[in-house]
Simulated scan of single mutants.
Amino acid sequence: MYRSVFKPGLFKDQLTIVTGGGSGIGRCTAHELAALGATVALVGRDPDKLARVREEIAAVGGVAQAWPCNIRDEAAVQALVAAIVAEHGRIDGLVNNAGGQFPAPLKDISLKGWEAVLQTNLTGGFLMARECLNQAMQARGGAVVNIVADMWGGMPNMGHSGAARAGMVNFTETAAFEWAQYGVRVNAVAPGYVASSGMDAYPPSMKQTIQAFPQTVPLKRFGTEAEISAAIVFLLSEAAAFITGTTLRVDGGRPNVRPGMPMPALRNPSVPFDGFHLAQTPKVLGGD
């Protein structure tokens, strides 16, 4: 089963939504939340992926449900949240994890491509958070965690994603202020280079670039999905009751590297936390 560092039963009797729950960080987070007692609502566009994760969780005694939805569709999001509330009577947590982008310099990004990335990484997260607030959390409180990215200083060749993620950080800070009156906390997690299945979605031309990422990270390695999930779970938990409006970086210190400053040799390697029992190495990094 999932090897979480958090206490058993931490989310007993709670309902948490995880968007993008069919793969990668979302899948891992869903497993950890279920292992800690939550009923997890898996949201995504691919019903087959959601069904597989639901079955994985059920196989180790957890509870999850698959809720296919295009989070860019306002009416679909409204109907989704209404259906979850009708069935469970509550929503305690929302992990806005769904996202995606493609590599391209700004000059080559079409309006359609730009809008698609912003709708997925910014608008969809806003719609999910707004509806969870209006339909459930406004009455009883809750916690929202938005997944952004290491976009500090810009995201060359992914400017559409950088703009969306920066927007989500600002949304997080604004919502934290406006929604505190309802007992709703809103935070974000910014993953760095994480060894996740999402790496295999990029074209073969990026293989060498991806494999070289750890050389730009002070801890000299990729992060694991479980290390991101642990940050998310902490921010959803009662231990973070006085934390709202913050963005927690989980990136091995990559944004702290300065041009012209030599990278110190690593004397004591950082040991990855591998709590996810079903984690697999991406193919681009030599996995099966």
Rank of each mutant, 00 (worst) to 15 (best):
A175D: 05
D200P: 05
R267E: 13
V117L: 12
F102Y: 13
M151D: 11
I232N: 03
A195L: 13
F6C: 07
V81Q: 06
F234E: 04
A190V: 00
P272V: 03
A64V: 05
V63I: 14
G253A: 00
E115A: 13
G21F: 08
F177I: 14
V60A: 12
T216P: 02
T39G: 11
L285D: 10
V189H: 01
G252W: 04
P191S: 10
L15D: 05
L10Y: 05
R221M: 11
A129E: 01
A166W: 00
I243Q: 02
R130A: 06
V194R: 04
T174R: 03
T209Y: 13
V43A: 03
R3V: 08
F234T: 08
T246H: 07
P203K: 10
H31F: 04
K220M: 08
D288A: 15
Q78W: 02
L235N: 06
S196I: 06
I210H: 02
A163V: 13
L106S: 10
N121L: 10
D288N: 15
S23R: 15
Q138D: 07
K49M: 04
G252N: 09
E178F: 11
D13P: 01
W67R: 13
S196C: 03
G245A: 10
R185I: 04
G159R: 09
A34N: 10
F276T: 08
A166T: 02
A41E: 01
P259D: 14
P269Q: 06
E227D: 00
T174E: 07
G275K: 07
R130P: 02
V186S: 00
M1Y: 14
V60Q: 15
L219F: 08
A241S: 14
E131D: 10
R52H: 03
A83V: 08
E173W: 02
G287Y: 04
Q208W: 05
N256G: 06
A175N: 05
G9A: 07
T39Q: 13
M137V: 00
A38H: 07
A143N: 03
G89D: 02
G100K: 12
T281F: 07
G287I: 06
L248M: 08
T16S: 02
S4G: 11
A231E: 02
Q181S: 11
H88W: 15
K207N: 15
